[in-house]
Amino acid sequence: MKGRVLIVAGSDPGGGAGIQADLKAVTALSAYGATVITALTAQNTRGVFGVHAPPVAFVAQQMELVLEDIGADAIKTGMLHAAEVIEVVCASLDEFAKGVPLVVDPVMVAKGGARLLKPEAEGALRSLLLPRATIITPNLPEAEALLGQPIEGVTGMRKAAEALLSMGPSAVLLKGGHGTGPVVVDVLRTAEGEQLFEAPRIETRATHGTGCTLASAIAAGLAQGLRVEAAVARGRRYLREAMLTAPGFGHGHGPLNHAHTVRPFD
């Protein structure tokens, strides 16, 4: 086991997304996962039916206690549902995790359509969290919300990735899974340039937690000393196999096979 990843996100009792998916991905890639829970959700593969938020002081306390004791080689944020949560997370990052690579998955809307970020919190996400990020991993709807404009095709994605980079993160991985066509294109943009990742589209309902899983896989790579490009490439390979070997559970957007790297004891 190599690399400590602190995951700051919401909980999914169904195990397909959120903290549960994050921990599975980090562990499956041989890193150590610790967690700060920002929200409890009542959800399954069909959708999100309730959200319960702990006091923001408790979120800060979780971060402080884990970071001062265990520490972190990378931090990943997921569901930060309100501006005050983003503010306290950023304050904790500045106080206890200066210089630690930060992966920001700008979670806004669940697969089933439920909002996981209050509209009034989008400004805090843009102004406070994005500039601190080593890499952000928006999907197309999230990127459109952050930029306030539609994104059309790969050409539009390339321009959007550049515009998102200007918001302050060191790198942007703009994911194309919500697009159309037989090939999925993801755009990685850094100050050094651009890299396109292409793969045949997988026709499957096993898409629950794909964003959480990829962001956490990237965080595990950064915690293990990989460069951003290598962490993204490995994370995408891990996610693709997890989708291809999904167990078929649930009646909606099904979960992934996070354990495909794991071999059972005899």
Rank of each mutant, 00 (worst) to 15 (best):
I7K: 02
V51M: 15
R234V: 05
P169C: 07
T261C: 12
A230Y: 07
G176T: 10
Q43T: 04
E64P: 08
L174Q: 02
A199P: 04
E192L: 01
G10P: 11
E152P: 05
T41K: 00
Y32K: 00
G3F: 04
M167P: 06
M79F: 09
A233E: 12
G248K: 10
I19G: 10
P247W: 10
I19P: 01
E162I: 06
L6Q: 09
H260P: 09
R158K: 12
L130R: 07
G16R: 12
K98W: 15
S166Q: 04
Q149L: 09
G47L: 02
A91R: 13
H253Q: 03
T41P: 03
N257L: 03
V56Q: 05
I135D: 05
L128C: 07
A114D: 04
A259W: 07
Y32Q: 01
M157C: 00
T190D: 03
V26P: 03
R227K: 15
A21K: 05
L125H: 04
G181I: 06
D94V: 11
P169A: 06
L40C: 06
P255N: 08
F249N: 15
I136P: 02
I70W: 11
V187Q: 00
E192D: 10
Q43Y: 11
I86T: 12
T204C: 10
L80P: 08
V107W: 01
A25H: 12
G221H: 08
S11M: 11
G33Q: 13
S170Y: 03
D69L: 05
A143E: 01
T137L: 03
A82W: 12
G252T: 09
K118P: 03
L165C: 03
I151K: 02
A259S: 06
G193N: 04
R201G: 03
A21T: 14
M167S: 05
G254V: 02
V183P: 01
T27M: 09
L29C: 12
I19E: 08
I86H: 04
G153P: 09
M1K: 08
G10V: 06
V109E: 03
V5C: 10
L40G: 06
E122C: 07
V66S: 15
A31G: 15
I136N: 06
V51I: 15
E144D: 03
K159F: 11
Q224E: 02
E241L: 14
D69K: 08
L125E: 01
G153V: 06
A83C: 14
E192Q: 05
G14A: 13
E68N: 12
D12Q: 12
A21S: 13
